[in-house]
Simulated scan of single mutants.
Amino acid sequence: MVIHLENYGGDCGKQMSLAKFKYVFGVHVATYCPQETACLLRGTWEKSAACYALIDWKTLPIFFSSLLPNLNFKEWMLEQALGLKAEIFEKLMMIIWALWKNINSKLWENRSHTATDMLFSCMTWLEEFQKARKSAVLPVKQVQQKWRPAATNRIKINVDGAFLAQLPHGGIGGIIRDSNSQFIATFAQPVQHVNSAKHVELLAIRAGVDLAKQLQLHQATIESDCLQAVQDIAFADYQSLDFGSIIDDIQGVQICFAPRTSNKVAHRLANMAFESDQNETWFGSIPNCILDIVQEETHPPI
């Protein structure tokens, strides 16, 4: 079957094979444009889009009723997105956009461009966009946040938890320092029957609070690198959450999120506890297992 199109979004007076007709019209109709689908199925596309065809219009509804159920433009696009290289897929998207824009220009403004013009223009737009995007991306220096001591007359407790989903146990660790970066105490403890990283982190926070109470330390700020745990503690209706009973023991203490780069000591202590079966607590002097990190944070290299 051969179909003759006049000014349908491209060159006029060109003949199409049925396969090409199915591709151009099928892909377009598969986007479910209500006006154009209705015109096609009524056989009145000729009037609405200045399109005429050497085809029996009486059979056109039958033709499309058999064609449309087999079309799934979304699945086809997903297939292209997964199968094509990124640069090729970008060009495909630009071409589809240009075709869609040209079709609408013909429908609503009665003007269109040739296929050659569309191809060159959309590739030019893509090139200009890529250049603009490339020039806008400036090299960014990654600045790691370092540990800082607490505010004057306060203490800081850094805590962390270690957990693996395949194992029922974990480890928690923490360190307490004053506003002058002076070491006060630290702990490393294995914990049993835990089921998530947040669970372990909440136990680490509670252990830090308990140690501060034991030493009669007040005005404490606790830092954790588990954002979800910090958010749960701050949640007004925390008792309705998982581990609400643990959170209840933590209330009344200032809790802050700290990235891993400023929580190195607690991270090492938690990993040590994960591999151990002993509860360890140190007071007064810094244990050798964390001495290097504490000294680095207290006296960072210039």
Rank of each mutant, 00 (worst) to 15 (best):
L138I: 09
A86L: 09
L269M: 01
S105F: 10
D249L: 08
D56K: 05
K106D: 13
A150K: 00
K146W: 08
V159C: 07
T261K: 04
A220P: 04
M272K: 15
Y238M: 02
A204M: 02
P287I: 01
G9R: 07
A236P: 09
A234C: 10
A98P: 02
T261Y: 04
L119T: 08
D248A: 15
A136R: 08
E275L: 15
A212N: 00
C12W: 13
D237L: 06
T186L: 04
L217E: 00
H267Y: 07
I250V: 07
G244F: 03
A197V: 06
S135W: 10
T114M: 04
K156E: 01
L107N: 10
T261Q: 04
G173R: 02
K198G: 13
E223V: 04
A53L: 10
V230I: 07
G9Q: 06
G13F: 07
R177Q: 06
A165C: 15
A204Q: 04
Q189N: 13
I62R: 14
T59Q: 11
T281M: 11
K22F: 07
A204H: 01
N104S: 04
Q251A: 01
E75I: 13
V24H: 09
F21I: 05
P149H: 05
Q295P: 10
F163V: 06
I176E: 01
N110R: 15
S121Y: 11
F187M: 01
R260H: 02
L241C: 01
L138H: 13
A38R: 12
G208E: 00
W125F: 08
F89V: 05
A162R: 03
S179D: 09
C51Y: 09
T298E: 12
L41V: 08
T298V: 12
A151F: 08
L215E: 06
A49G: 12
L18T: 10
L167R: 14
K198V: 14
T261D: 07
A207I: 06
D232R: 07
A258V: 03
D178G: 02
E127F: 07
A151H: 11
N110D: 10
V194C: 02
Y32F: 13
P149M: 07
F129K: 05
V159L: 05
L119C: 09
G83E: 15
F89M: 05
D292L: 15
I103D: 09
N70W: 10
D249R: 10
P301K: 13
T37N: 15
Y52L: 13
